[in-house]
Design a protein around this nucleic acid. Structure first.
Lengths: 387, 387
DNA sequence: ATAGCTATCGGAAAGGTTTCCGCAAAGCTT
DNA sequence: AAGCTTTGCGGAAACCTTTCCGATAGCTAT
C-alpha cells in the first residue's frame, strides 16, 4: 500500500476515490487525504523575458522599489534608482504591457476595422491613422472584414476582448444593421466611423465631401458640354452612395436638367460589375455622353472597356470618378476625379478618437468633413468651360 | 485633538509627521500610528465590462466554477453550467484577453512589421497573412516602419512589450544591421523574414524567385532582340537587389553577352529617382534599347517619361519590371513583369511562423521560395521570339 | 451500516504591474 | 532629550484568468 505523506505510516491508508484521474488516499491515523505527487512538475518556466521581480532579486530590493525607480516616482534614493536602472538595462528588462494594461484598465491600443487593405483608399487612411497613433503613443490593431458582415462582427468581438481603448470603423458593403456597434458603445468604448458610416448611430464620423464632390464633378461634366450624364452608383443603403447621388441630382437641378432614372444604376461597385453596367448604358436608346462613377477604379475599368470598343474619350463619352488614385493619374486618358485626401481622413479620425478617449466627458457627436478638391484631367476635357 | 482610531481615546494622540501630504498621528496608549481616512474613495470602478466575478456573484457560485463552465471543463453539473452560460450571456460577458494571456504566457498574437502599407505588394502580403491568421485564431498587430530604421527598432520593442508570440518582418530600406532582431531571437521569440531579408540572421525566410524572375525577364528582353539592356537596381546592400542583379547577369552570361557596368544603376527605387536614372541612360553614347527595373512602378514611371519624350515603346526601348500590379496591367503600354504572387507569400510566411510557434522544437532555418511567373505584355513585345 | 467512490464545487496561487499604506531610522527643532 | 518631520523602502492588494488541490455530500456495493 501507500505510505501516508504526513505520518509516513502504511497501515491506516485506504483508497479514497479518484480525483481528476489520480488515485486519492486517506490516512485514518492522521486523518488526511492525499494523492500521489506528479514528481516532475515542468521546471521549464522562465520564458526568457525578465520581470520586475528579476530586477528586484538581482539587487535585493523589493518590487515596489523597482517599480518606483522605473516609473520615475519620488520616494526613492537617487543611488538606489541608478542601480535599479542599471540592473534593468543589464537584464534587458521590458515592461509587460499585458500586466500594465490589466492593472490600469486601459491598453493604449485602438482597434481599426476596414473592409479591405488592398483598396488604396483604405491603405492611405490607415497610413494616416498610424501616423497620428505613433506620435501619440497609441498602438493599433487592424482587422479586415473583407466586405463581410459576419467577419466584421467577429472583428468587433475580438477587439472588445483585447480591451481596446477605442474603435475606428468603416463598414463592409454588407453591413446595414448596427447592433454589434451599439453593443460596443454601450460598454462605454468610444467609436469613430469614417467613409462607410451608419447614420443611425450617434457617433462621431469623419467624412469626405461626398455631396459636394459629386456635385462638382457632375457640374464639370455639364459645363464641358455633356448632355446625357449617367451615374454608376453603389448599394442603395450605403450612406456615401446616397450622398453622391444627391450631389449628382443637385447639379442637374442647378442647371435645370431633368433627371432620367434610366441613367442611374445601382451596382455592387466591383470590377466585374463594370462590364454589365457599361453594356446597359450602351443599350439605351440614347447612350450617355458622360459617365460618372462613384468609385474611381470603376471609371478606369469602364474607360478600358470603352477604349477596347473604339469609343473616343472624352469626345464620345467623358468620364469622371470619385477619389484620386495613381491609376486614375497614369491611365490613358487620365481620369478626372474629386480627390478626397484619404491620409487627412485617417489623421482626423485618429485625432477625434484620441480626444474622445482622453476627455471622458463625451462631447456631442458630430460629423467632421475633410475638404477635397476637383482634379480635372483628360477624360473629361471636351473643350468646354473649365470652372 | 484627534481621536485614536483604535482605542478611541484622545489624550494619548500626538502628531507624527506627514506622509504623502496627510497628517500622521501616533497614539501613545495603544501605540499605533494612523492617518485621517480619505472618506470618499472613488466608487466609480466598473468600467462597463463584466468579469467572471460578476457572473459568479450573479449566481452565488465561485469563480472557479464559472471558469470551468465557460471553458467546457468537466467536473461541473450540467445544470450549473447551463445557468452560468445563461448568466454570462445576459451580462454580455467577454473574457479579458489581457488576463488570459498574462496567465497563459502566450497571447496568440503575432507582430508584423512592414515598411509601407501603401505599397501594393505589402498590402497584398498583409492580406495573405491576415487570411491564414484568421483561420488559425491568431491576431496580428501591424506596424509600419515607413522605411526608417529607427522606427523599425521602435516597432520591435513595442511588439516585444506586447508579448507577441512571433514576429514577421520585412526590413526598411535603411536597415542593414540586425542587433534589434537578434535581441528578439535571443528572447526565444520565433521570427520569419520575407522579401527584404537580412541573410546574416539564422531565421526562416520566405522569398520570391528574385534570381529566376530577373533571369526570365532579361532573357525575354534578349530574345525579343534587345541589344543593350540596362537595369535600374536598388540599394546595393539589399539582398533582393543583389539577387535580381545576379539574375540579370546570369541571363547575359547564358547568351554570351558582355556585362557593361554603364548600364547598371543602383538607386533608391523611389519614384523621384526615375527621372535621373532615365536621363542618365539617355545620356550614354549608346542608350539602352531595353530597360529592366527592379520595381514595377519604376518601370511604369520611366515609360511615362519616355512617352512624354516621344520615345516609342517597345520599338525604341522595351521595358520589363519585377512584380505585378494593377498599374502595370492598365498602363499603356502594359508592362511585362514577373509576377511573384504576394498573397501566397503572406500565406506562407504565416504558415511557417505558426509551425514555429507550435513546434517549439525549432526545426532548422530554411528559405522558402514562392514560385512566380513571367507575364509578357506590350512593353516588351518587339516581335521577337516569346519563350 | 460502512468502506470505498464519485460528482461537484470552493479556495488559493500564479502571472507582472502599480499603488496604497505602514514602518523604521535618521534628521530637525525646541 | 523629547517632540515632530522626512526619507526610503517593504508588504500587500488589486486587475482578471486559469488551474491545482482539497473538501464534502451523497452514492454503491458489501
Amino acid at each position: 500500500m501507500q505510505k501516508c505523506t504526513k505520518c509516513h505510516q502504511v497501515d491506516g491508508v485506504i483508497k479514497a476515490g479518484f480525483i481528476r484521474g489520480n488515485q486519492r488516499f486517506f490516512c485514518k491515523i492522521c486523518s488526511q487525504h492525499f494523492i500521489l505527487e506528479n514528481a516532475f512538475k515542468s521546471d521549464l518556466k522562465k520564458n526568457g523575458q525578465s520581470t520586475i521581480t528579476d530586477v528586484a532579486n538581482a539587487l535585493g530590493v523589493s518590487i515596489s522599489t523597482v517599480s518606483r525607480a522605473l516609473n520615475d516616482k519620488s520616494d526613492i534614493n537617487p543611488d538606489t534608482k541608478k542601480a535599479i536602472l542599471q540592473a534593468a538595462m543589464e537584464l534587458d528588462y521590458r515592461p509587460n504591457l499585458l500586466a500594465q494594461s490589466l492593472h490600469k484598465g486601459k491598453t493604449n491600443t485602438i482597434g481599426v476595422i476596414i473592409p479591405d487593405v488592398e483598396h488604396p483608399f483604405f491603405a492611405k487612411v490607415l497610413a494616416g491613422i498610424q501616423q497620428v497613433a505613433n506620435s501619440s503613443c497609441f498602438r493599433i490593431i487592424v482587422c479586415h472584414s473583407n466586405e463581410s458582415k459576419s467577419a466584421e462582427i467577429l472583428n468587433t468581438e475580438t477587439l472588445i476582448d483585447c480591451r481596446v481603448d477605442g474603435l475606428i470603423i468603416s463598414h463592409s458593403k454588407e453591413t446595414t444593421s448596427f447592433e454589434h456597434i451599439k453593443k460596443i458603445i454601450d460598454k462605454g468604448i468610444p467609436v469613430v466611423q469614417f467613409d462607410r458610416i451608419i447614420t443611425e448611430l450617434n457617433t462621431h464620423n469623419v467624412m469626405h465631401q461626398d455631396y459636394k464632390g459629386s456635385f462638382d464633378l457632375v457640374e464639370h461634366l455639364i459645363l464641358q458640354g455633356c448632355e446625357r450624364i449617367a451615374i454608376m452608383s453603389g448599394p442603395q443603403e450605403m450612406y456615401i452612395c446616397k450622398q453622391r447621388l444627391e450631389g449628382y441630382k443637385a447639379a442637374f437641378q442647378k442647371y435645370g436638367r431633368e433627371i432620367n432614372e434610366e441613367y442611374i444604376v445601382h451596382s455592387n461597385i466591383a470590377k466585374k460589375d463594370c462590364l454589365d453596367v457599361f453594356d446597359y448604358f450602351m443599350s439605351l436608346e440614347y447612350p450617355p455622353d458622360g459617365i460618372f462613377t462613384i468609385l474611381n477604379r470603376n471609371g478606369v475599368e469602364m474607360m478600358k472597356i470603352a477604349k477596347e470598343r473604339g469609343i473616343r474619350i472624352p469626345q464620345e463619352i467623358a468620364f469622371a470618378g470619385f477619389g484620386d488614385d495613381i491609376l486614375a493619374e497614369y491611365f490613358e486618358p487620365s481620369l478626372t476625379v474629386f480627390n478626397h485626401f484619404p491620409p487627412a481622413i485617417g489623421q482626423e479620425v485618429m485625432k477625434v478618437l484620441i480626444r474622445l478617449i482622453e476627455n471622458k466627458t463625451h462631447f456631442p457627436a458630430y460629423n467632421h468633413f475633410i475638404e477635397g478638391e476637383l482634379v480635372v484631367r483628360q477624360s473629361s476635357q471636351k473643350g468646354g468651360y473649365i470652372k
